[in-house]
Amino acid sequence: MGLDRNQIAWRIAQDIADGSYVNLGIGMPELVADYIPEGREIVFHSENGLLGMGPKPPKDREDHDLMNAGKKPVTLVPGGAYFHHTDSFLMIRGGHLDLCVLGAYQISEAGDLANWATDSDKRLPAVGGAMDLAAGTPRVVAMTTHCARDGTPKLLGECTFPLTAAGVVDRVYTDLAVVDVTPAGFVAREIVDGMTLDELRDRTGARLTAAENPGILKAPALGHAAG
């Protein structure tokens, strides 16, 4: 019933306005770039010093001096620019970007985001640019499955994992719903076809209300179109 990751990415892409400067977090959010509607010009920012990031190059055109934040080879689109790290994070921390799309372990009804560490994590702690993006970008949206693999809700009254930033998330896009974070808590704007509000509440770990006329969350079948 729910959307797959490409379909969530497609749904997010529909909401990105022409002319926006956007940072896509490492991992699932990177898929959003594949689904920007025809005719919209979106400038993608990469924290390692790049505006105007384009798709990955063919294998024989890869250059290890041209990377994205995930350290994978990318390209620069016409009009793109390189700059150094302090300028790159000035763009992030100074609120110069319009939007960032970040993955999430948990989101609280107050808009707290947890996406950098879990206490069961056996790896070394690693934060990268997550806290800068979450704290500095004017509009922060989270892209995630509605529940973890074991069925535990990710939308909660309070996060139990360490926070990335407090009170920053504006909207959550999941496989089951589009949910706004408001002063009154989580508000469902769209719910996937065939699911009732009560069924969505069963999968949500916080109080959830519905917008006046909630829409149906849907996306085209995307098959293997994504890169």
Binding site: H85, R93, L124, V127, G128, G129, M131, D132
Partner: peptide, 8 residues
Amino acid sequence: VAPQGTIS
């Protein structure tokens, strides 16, 4: 470990 922009 510190935020990337904070180090910069």
